[in-house]
Design a protein around this nucleic acid. Sequence first.
DNA 1: TACAATTCCGACCAAGGTGCTCGGAAATCC
DNA 2: GGATTTCCGAGCACCTTGGTCGGAATTGTA
Lengths: 153, 153
Amino acid sequence: MLGNPIPTAFHVSTRGEYGMRLMVELARSWGRGTVSLHAIAEREDLPEAYLEQLVAALRKAGLVTGKRGAGGGYLLAREPAGITAGDVVRALEGPIEPQICTAEGDPVVNCVRQQDCGTHEVWAKLQKSIATALDSMTLAELVMTKRPALATT
Amino acid sequence: MLGNPIPTAFHVSTRGEYGMRLMVELARSWGRGTVSLHAIAEREDLPEAYLEQLVAALRKAGLVTGKRGAGGGYLLAREPAGITAGDVVRALEGPIEPQICTAEGDPVVNCVRQQDCGTHEVWAKLQKSIATALDSMTLAELVMTKRPALATT
DNA sequence: TACAATTCCGACCAAGGTGCTCGGAAATCC
DNA sequence: GGATTTCCGAGCACCTTGGTCGGAATTGTA
């Protein structure tokens, strides 16, 4: 059409994408000790230094725990069945809020137009739909492929 | 507007937000002739020059038609019940694609990892959920508020 | 003890997207 | 002819994205 390529809607950034792959790898190795970022970066062909940033966010969100030093690495903070795709996305990309007037949890009052706003319904319904979809998938379910787990330390 | 968009996931930009409001206004005036951008900008308190950009995308998508000259303006290209929130979002923000491997319609082959990719399921399910939610709402339904229609020309 | 592995931390940077503004051409009505 | 309004493209400041880099702190092993 125009000279500018139309971007895509609801695109999840590399933070969400890489982070999800990282978490699935960790889930594969669940119960076998820690896995180093180096191993994950190699296996998934991702920039290791960048993964450090992402895993920091996951740790702060209480989804993974790290162990320093030689033979160290990361592991899930709880069992794969207890972590949802929603948990991962929220930790890396923030709360699911199509619009400020549809913030998760809070009874937000930011919007002055609330009363007769015909569009509020759209974003509220959308928010609920996204959250429901992501919260309905656990890491345990995503691991159901034939790929073997990474070597643990 | 709010100059501080906190990092939130799945945030729809002002293109989608303003565009949706614009379309709801047009839906309110359906059957009464054209409405000028000036009137809409005033009513919704939005920058008129910016709306021009958005309405251009809506016109190219075949959702609205414009009439030039004095007394001109825009009107929906078809009845409000025949236009969904998904139509509007796609026209303004592009196709609904959480990841390139989950493009709408196309049998995409971009992803080399497809075979044993544990995360593909997440984005595919998410895409379907978003599309279903947005495609299930029509402009006719969104107009169900007590607010009066704009004066038409 | 030395050393390598590994997490942890903060700064920095290029490229591109967001959210507009501006000036002007073309059509249409009075 | 003049006012109105759509149509069109360029430009611009700011922010986010997608990383890199250097260096600390911690821990297992030779």
